[in-house]
Design a protein around this nucleic acid. Structure first.
Lengths: 312, 312
DNA sequence: TCGGCCTGATACCTCCTGGATATCAGGGAG
DNA sequence: CTCCCTGATATCCAGGAGGTATCAGGCCGA
């Protein structure tokens, strides 16, 4: 019992199109007799005539029309499936679930995501704002594919993750234009210890805060400290005179009229902005995103490959 | 360049299902090496790895998952297409466009259509009420597939049509119970010529009327004649005392309280109720309907086949 | 650390079957 | 009636799908 093959579908479609076995055979690049045989084989398998052979050609029966319609769709689907698989392999189809920290939305992601979406239009991107610790857990749990965090991942399962630094930030201050330090444009760490401050909340391991913990360890406890969830709020509170706000330097662009930026001296580096993903994940979409990142962030490309290579 | 075949899809799906080339091969009833080769051929054609070979089995890559999903759907579609073609060949799929005269709805069609719909649930039936002449034209124009008319088709293109009689009717009269003839239950043709009558309209060749034309040719022109579109109206008008209504005998069942049926003597046969279709049409749906009709109307089966055979 | 074993890949052979050539049969059109 | 164009049939050939034997590599357990 000869099973159906795509060849049969191609042949039947060709005969239906040309309404002529000879011409169809020529179009297919084969001789007429084998085409006749193959078509007859299909008819036998189906138990139905697909064509009415007349002295002047070959016209499809009702069953033939029905079958040909299916065959056309199927042949099309084969191409679609092949192309889809190729695109999936290139990371140009599928979905990418991202976990990001808020500050990544300021400088890194707008350009990077735009670039990725243009080079990989077939990829759906899902984005959740998560803290670095939450991202690590979500990665390990398989809930997201890629995270943008501050600092290398830590905690349970972190050894199964790989990270690559994509941005270096330092601490900068921001204050109202009316603030005594505004004119200087500079603030020393020592001065920070003697100022009312506006910081991110310490709810769930905000890396910036932990980095600041030791820096401000021996600070005067009687000085006011205001906490806020995101950089916009910190800037707002600082502008209102709650004190000097502390931000990652990537937030420089957010400074608005009525506020002044304060460079911190000496420089206080923050944990690097990192892309984190599962080490064993062989997801082309993730690979593709990392590749786009390498192009988008000049200089991190080599390091990126080095980090990936370490695992392989 | 080896082109893709369904075999390849079947093999890839099997390997993906078993996550193991050896077991997949056993399930397919072939040896392991050829399966390895065929899968590799697909990968080569796609330019992509579809499976990750580990020491403990074979797991699909992302591209593999994508391709396998398509492959499964395609293989399913092949079966669906084959089955659909077979059903179409048996006349159990497709549509049947009917043109019918109103009186066919009284006795013939209710049972016949119900029977057809149960034996051929996959066939969509479209129904238009047309006069016999309109049906003939619609058949020739390809607007309908089958017509129920009274009398053999005539007019342009009628020679390309085939008809089979499925019902024999004669003329019956109907009148109000108050009518002098009501008690007799019989009316002679001669009496008909001297009565006020209710007839179908002669707008567009109502066969019943043409059949009556000669019968009543020398009728007294001063007698009232009322025309109505359909049998229900004729019965209604007759009941109201407009005169004796003339109907095909198949309308007997419609007689209602307050009216009386009148047999016509001598019997006046009407043109047979006919199923008409294009002679060259090799529509399985039409064939199927004719076959169901043969079962439904005992005695017309043999004649039906004879008429069809004449063409073949 | 090493051998056994299970995995899939490779080499080579066989034979099935799809395709080519030659020819036949039937139905219109002239 | 005859020619020609249609598809079907007969027969042969060769590519390749499938089989057998064997190899290579990774895990596991001793």
């Amino acid at each position: 019992m000869p099973t159906m093959e795509l060849r049969h579908l191609r042949y039947v479609v060709a005969v239906a199109e040309h309404r002529h076995v000879g011409r169809a055979a020529r179009a297919l690049g084969i001789a007429q007799p084998p085409l006749s045989r193959q078509v007859a084989a299909v008819e036998e398998e189906l138990g139905t005539r697909l064509f009415e052979r007349t002295g002047r050609g070959t016209i499809p029966t009702v069953a033939g029309e029905v079958f040909v319609a299916h065959a056309r769709r199927i042949l099309e689907q084969v191409d679609v499936g092949a192309e889809d698989a190729r695109r999936a392999a290139r990371g140009q189809s599928g979905t990418l679930r991202l976990g990001i920290i808020g500050s990544a939305l300021i400088e890194l992601l707008p350009g990077l995501l735009a670039r990725f979406r243009t080079t990989h239009p077939g990829v759906g991107v899902g984005c959740r704002e998560l803290s670095s610790a939450q991202s690590t857990a979500a990665l390990v749990a398989g809930e997201i594919d890629l995270a943008v965090c501050r600092g290398m991942p830590r905690g349970p399962g972190a050894e199964r993750l790989q990270a690559v630094a994509v941005g270096h930030d330092q601490l900068v201050g921001i204050c109202s234009r009316a603030h005594p330090l505004a004119a200087r444009g500079v603030i020393t760490v020592d001065q920070l210890r003697r100022q009312p401050l506006v910081l991110t909340t310490s709810d769930d391991e905000p890396s910036t805060v932990t980095a600041l913990a030791e820096l401000l360890a021996d600070r005067d406890a009687t000085l006011s400290t205001t906490h806020a969830r995101d950089v916009h709020t910190i800037i707002g509170l600082a502008a209102c005179g709650f004190g000097v706000g502390l931000l990652p330097s990537c937030a420089r662009g957010l400074v608005r009229p009525g506020t002044a930026l304060l460079e911190v001296e000496p420089v206080v580096p923050l944990p690097d902005l990192c892309l984190v993903h599962r080490a064993e994940t062989d997801s082309p979409v993730v690979d593709a995103f990392l590749a786009v990142t390498a192009e988008h962030c000049p200089g991190v490309g080599s390091r990126l490959r080095a980090v990936r290579g370490r695992a392989g």
